[in-house]
């Protein structure tokens, strides 16, 4: 309880927690759309691809500037998605292998650049390895502003474009038939994903960012068949995970934020998979048992 009070009273902590919760909320939202479009692992590829972008931005500017990192990661992410599509379209290599190739290649380049930066002994690089697993406590005030800005933009866009996003998630062909700019909308959605991933890298790290996109969305999917409810739930689950991640990593020294956030999201997922009324494991087994009993009783009654 004291710890919770501390978070509330410490202004720095309050900002960071708010930022991480916003991040969880927005990644839950956009993750739900990605899940429905069966493109969950794109987030993983984008997050890994961001690393060389960040490194190059740092090498060019020589300072840790969030805007520079954002731009670098954005460009790298765009190249990565393009590369995946290109490989899958122009050779017999399938989408998943293309994703694996691009992801590991970009990460390899990133690691190469990262070690080069570290070996060159540049003064300001000390925090760069925090990008791998995230350390929310190291976020500056402007980082939090950035996070809040991106999240609000994303929330706004998701609200404004709810209807088109919904349609292309469920039936892109129909949307095309209605004359909507489906490709444009899909690109926009991908761009929003890149934004969330980049915004989240400082808090969660490149390695585990994809979990924040996937896990809350899948957990939410267990509870409902309605998109609006799913989006709301995924947002709430993401925000809760963000809160618990920052909370525990600030309580225990040496604990990176990312893994704790991801683990919290996984626990939410496990609870949903077990207990959700319609699709949960417990509910399903109970219904099956009841049906079997009914069938057996019915069978004897007829005889």
């Amino acid at each position: 309880m004291d710890a919770l009070w501390m978070i509330w009273t410490d202004p720095n902590m309050r900002w960071i927690v708010a930022g991480c919760m916003l991040l969880g909320l927005s990644s839950g939202l956009i993750g739900s759309y990605m899940l429905l479009q069966k493109r969950s692992l794109i987030g993983d590829a984008l997050a890994h691809a961001a690393l060389p972008g960040i490194c190059i931005a740092f090498m060019l500017t020589g300072v840790k500037s969030t805007v520079g990192f954002l731009l670098g990661a954005l460009i790298a992410g765009a190249i990565a998605t393009f590369g995946i599509r290109w490989i899958a379209a122009h050779s017999r290599i399938k989408q998943d292998a293309a994703m694996g190739i691009v992801l590991s290649l970009f990460f390899g380049i990133g690691v190469m650049l990262l070690t080069r930066i570290q070996h060159s002994g540049d003064g300001g690089q000390s925090g760069l390895d925090k990008f791998l697993f995230g350390q929310a406590a190291s976020m500056m005030r402007e980082d939090v502003y950035m996070l809040a800005g991106i999240s609000s933009l994303l929330l706004l866009l998701c609200l404004l474009l709810y209807k088109p996003f919904k349609l292309i998630s469920f039936d892109a062909g129909f949307a095309r038939g209605l004359g909507w700019p489906v490709a444009r909308l899909e690109q926009l959605m991908l761009l929003l994903t890149v934004l969330v991933v980049v915004a989240g890298i400082q808090a969660v790290g490149v390695v585990l960012m994809s979990a924040l996109l996937i896990t809350p969305a899948v957990a939410a999917r267990y509870w409902t068949d309605k998109l609006s409810v799913m989006l709301l739930l995924a947002g709430i689950f993401g925000a809760c995970s963000g809160f618990s991640g920052t909370f525990w990593s600030s309580m225990v020294t040496g604990l990176p934020t990312g893994p704790v956030t991801v683990l919290s999201a996984t626990i939410v997922f496990a609870v949903s998979a077990l207990l959700a009324p319609q699709r949960g494991w417990v509910g399903k087994s109970l219904r099956q048992r009841r049906a079997r009993q009914q069938w057996q009783q019915g069978g004897t009654a007829h005889e």
Binding site: R39, S40, A211, I214, T215, P259, V262, L263
Partner: peptide, 17 residues
């Protein structure tokens, strides 16, 4: 792909912790 994403991130997170 969603199930792959959930499982490996969860296990990796446990390992890092």
């Amino acid at each position: 792909d969603a199930s792959i994403g959930i499982i490996f991130t969860a296990l990796f997170a446990v390992g890092v912790i």
